[in-house]
Design a protein around this nucleic acid. Sequence first.
DNA 1: GTCTATAAATTGATAGAC
DNA 2: GTCTATCAATTTATAGAC
Lengths: 204, 204
Amino acid sequence: MSEQEKQKTEDKIMQAAKDIFVRKGKSGARMQEIADKAGINKSLLHYYYRSKDKLFGAVFQIAFSNFAPNLFKTIDESDDIFETIEIFISKYLDIISKNPFIPMFILNEVNKKDTGLIVRILKNSGMNIEVFENLVNKEIKNGKIKNVNPKNLLINILALCVFPYIGRPLIEVMIFNDDEIEYDKFLEGRKKEVTELIINSIKI
Amino acid sequence: MSEQEKQKTEDKIMQAAKDIFVRKGKSGARMQEIADKAGINKSLLHYYYRSKDKLFGAVFQIAFSNFAPNLFKTIDESDDIFETIEIFISKYLDIISKNPFIPMFILNEVNKKDTGLIVRILKNSGMNIEVFENLVNKEIKNGKIKNVNPKNLLINILALCVFPYIGRPLIEVMIFNDDEIEYDKFLEGRKKEVTELIINSIKI
DNA sequence: GTCTATAAATTGATAGAC
DNA sequence: GTCTATCAATTTATAGAC
């Protein structure tokens, strides 16, 4: 069998595994269900990945690396804090809206921390906060923004972006009367809402 | 056996079940582990609650009802929007900091929605958003605050309060260099931070 | 590489003695 | 009410044929 067709099978496995793991979590997922979704035999899963743990690790690795890194790359490109934040929020919300269930998946599994692997993945993510902190501190000294705490600022941004997605089933029922069309509209307006709120909180 | 001692056993079960379910989720939890933690036999679990599903339902019900309702009761007590928001944030953060793992537990299980029971619990929670929306709209008409969207405002508040707790393992590693003492300090300053940010976003 | 068959371990649930 | 013993079903993982 050609290298290309092998790649095909491995891709199908990864896609299926990601779907199932994201929806049901590591402990809720079943190898049989993943095999069915990939259209292959269950034994083949163990041929490619030796165990459920290994397969999960691969899925988590990919899911996380699509989220965390590259996010701060925009920061060196600009040295204007307002522009930086605007781009950051825009890019981050774009990623999330294209993968709305990944944040919940990551947060849930990280909170369980039943795999030593996960902490290792986090630390090797290459995400660098210092660039952001330095920029914020510089702009404070320059008198361009209020004297805000950079960590608080970053966490506020993340919170406002992520929460509407991880809390969707709850918020949709309790605040939007189960109206998902209305909720989609709400999500669309979110980029503007978050940007204005954050900018407004730092400008003098 | 006296009614009081029976209550004792049921309490031990509920406490143990809550601990395990919250840490491992419904699918990750094991009846054996719950029984061990409660210091009783596994069969006794089935005697009190007929199945794992039923036991989980009871735990979720209690966990959720400690969170959602009563939160909006402060709202009628005051008709000043600034005071209302301040009290709301303060009360909400107090509840969360005393039960830091419950939000993640609830959000995770609600996102899985593998029990029809959960949606029913949400709808019967008696949480009433309208009181809050009415107050906000009134204050807008009175010219006391900006023309903000009440739903957005409420979700912003919830996001800023909850996220530092559900994201803790991630944020602590990636932003606080694994320093949990520093993170606890950060959490302590959160009430002031959130209140100021929100108030600042609505005041004219 | 991919499949069938099956082992080996786990786990939710029940029967029945006390 | 509480326990011991055990069932029945599920589920991860492996052995071996093709």
